[in-house]
């Protein structure tokens, strides 16, 4: 069976800092996989290695059976890896629809086209549907710079979904959201089609656990626990990491 993601002994050093060390992880297709851990555990670095922001100093990254270790970030998007960022990285000078259009066309041929593509009308319809799906239809023609933080997080998700990803990697999608905005995000994540493999970094267990099939906990750049969500909260190592020595 071809897995969505296979990491083998992956590591990354930044000078003397060993941010990620010997991480091996397999995510089967269709699985919802949460990655938890305290600040500085190496979760986002791991994401950046998978998504090609920088190469690993050791190990291999394989996605859908293809070795991605030295491939550029742009190639990963084209084979169906979509991602969001911990801090929203959007095109703030453009409208919501334009952001979604860019995201839709990124994984297709003709993205360098100097004339409006034949699929222009379809692209705009797809972008409009996506804007509705992430509850931004009413802001579709507004500049991103005018959106609230929560709306920016919704747009982040819409852009990650725009390339019709097979593997969706969400880096703290609930970061900075108010309690009132979180249920909407939870619902959007629950509504994701079952065939999309989801890898999620999240501090908020209330967001991560209800939608996860498997949970990996990292600390100091290493995997320390891998469990199903119903058993993770009882794990003494996890309690020690999250609640302190007395709870271990």
């Amino acid at each position: 069976m071809v897995h969505a993601l296979e990491l083998t002994d992956i590591g990354r050093r930044f000078g003397a800092l060993h941010a990620v060390r010997n991480v091996s992880l397999t995510v089967p297709s269709g699985q919802r996989h949460a990655i938890l851990g305290p600040n500085g555990a190496g979760k986002t670095t791991l994401f950046n290695l998978v998504c090609g922001d920088f190469p690993p100093t050791s190990g291999r990254v394989v996605a859908f059976g293809e070795d991605m270790t030295r491939r550029p970030a742009s190639h990963r998007a084209r084979i169906g890896i979509g991602r969001t960022y911990q801090t929203s990285l959007l095109f703030t000078g453009l409208t919501v629809i334009d952001n979604l259009l860019i995201a839709i066309r990124g994984a297709r041929k003709g993205r360098l086209s100097l004339v409006p593509s034949a699929s222009n009308g379809q692209d705009i319809r797809d972008a409009t549907v996506l804007a509705e799906r992430v509850r931004l239809a009413h802001r579709a023609h507004h500049e991103v710079a005018t959106l609230s933080h929560g709306q920016r997080r919704q747009l982040e998700l819409g852009m990650a979904l725009a390339c019709k990803p097979r593997l969706l990697m969400l880096d703290e999608p609930a970061a900075g959201l108010s309690p009132a905005e979180r249920p909407e995000l939870n619902q959007m994540l629950k509504d994701l089609p079952g065939e999309i493999t989801l890898v999620l970094i999240e501090h908020d267990m209330d967001v991560a656990l209800p939608i996860s099939d498997m949970v990996t906990v990292m600390k100091d750049g290493e995997i320390v626990v891998q469990e199903t969500p119903d058993r993770i909260t009882d794990n003494p190592i996890v309690n020690k990491i999250y609640l302190g020595q007395g709870h271990g």
């Binding site: 742009s74 998007a77 084209r78 960022y85 095109f91 453009l94 409006p116």
Partner: peptide
Amino acid sequence: RTPFGLALQGIRDNPRRISALGYN
């Protein structure tokens, strides 16, 4: 307003993101 031009504005705003979306 073409696919090229929109992506160019994307590069202006955020080159890292545009690369992650599949653009060279």
